[in-house]
Design a protein around this nucleic acid. Sequence first.
DNA 1: ACCCAGGTGGCCC
DNA 2: GGGCCACATGGG
Length: 224
Amino acid sequence: MSAAAPMKLYALMRGRFGFLNWWPADTKFEILAGAVLTQQTSWKNVEGALANLKREHALSLESIAHINITKLEQLIRPSGFYRQKAARLKGICSYILGNYGTLERFLSQNVTALRKELLLLNGVGEETADSIVLYAGGKPVFVIDAYTRRAMHRVAGTSENISYGELQGFFGSRVRRNVRLYKDMHAQFVELGKRYCKAKPVCEGCPLNSVCMYFRSKKQGENY
DNA sequence: ACCCAGGTGGCCC
DNA sequence: GGGCCACATGGG
């Protein structure tokens, strides 16, 4: 790990994008549903699925816990993997409704317990669990995603295949434990990712160019 | 006609 | 613990 420390990167992105005030959703339940629907899927496609659910007044814990599975599949179809996601989302909602009654009560556990319980649910992996804990639960866990991993690889030289826990630990030990900061920092990485840090990098205009190993080695014609 | 997107779980070694 | 695979739509 050479050049760039997390707060340095954050300052550069924040300076460019401004405070992002994430997650884009009207309710906590919409955050939970969105977190599942966006797995390996562009947000644009997720918006279509969420719009369908809203139109049918089906965007709530109770509605999805009780909805006909075929109906749910058709509503979320634009988000891809729709059969898998329908079954998993419904299972998650049934579990929370059955064991806690409300999403609010489920989310009111302490960070550790909540994260652990989320990870037991089929369809909730580390990123989804952490997104829900941070953005719906408002509790401090740092979210790692493909954009964060890719950006850190290109900018700071971390391994392309660094594990979720290892990269999360890296940030956790260097960034002040603060919900507002955690929320915005992840948002900044996603914003960066969508514009500049896709599988095919777009170095032109990227706010991290001043510290980007990938960018510099390219300009020098080195093999990165 | 490719390649890609804010992952996850199952199976194998 | 890591490597490979299915899962699926919509956009570039």
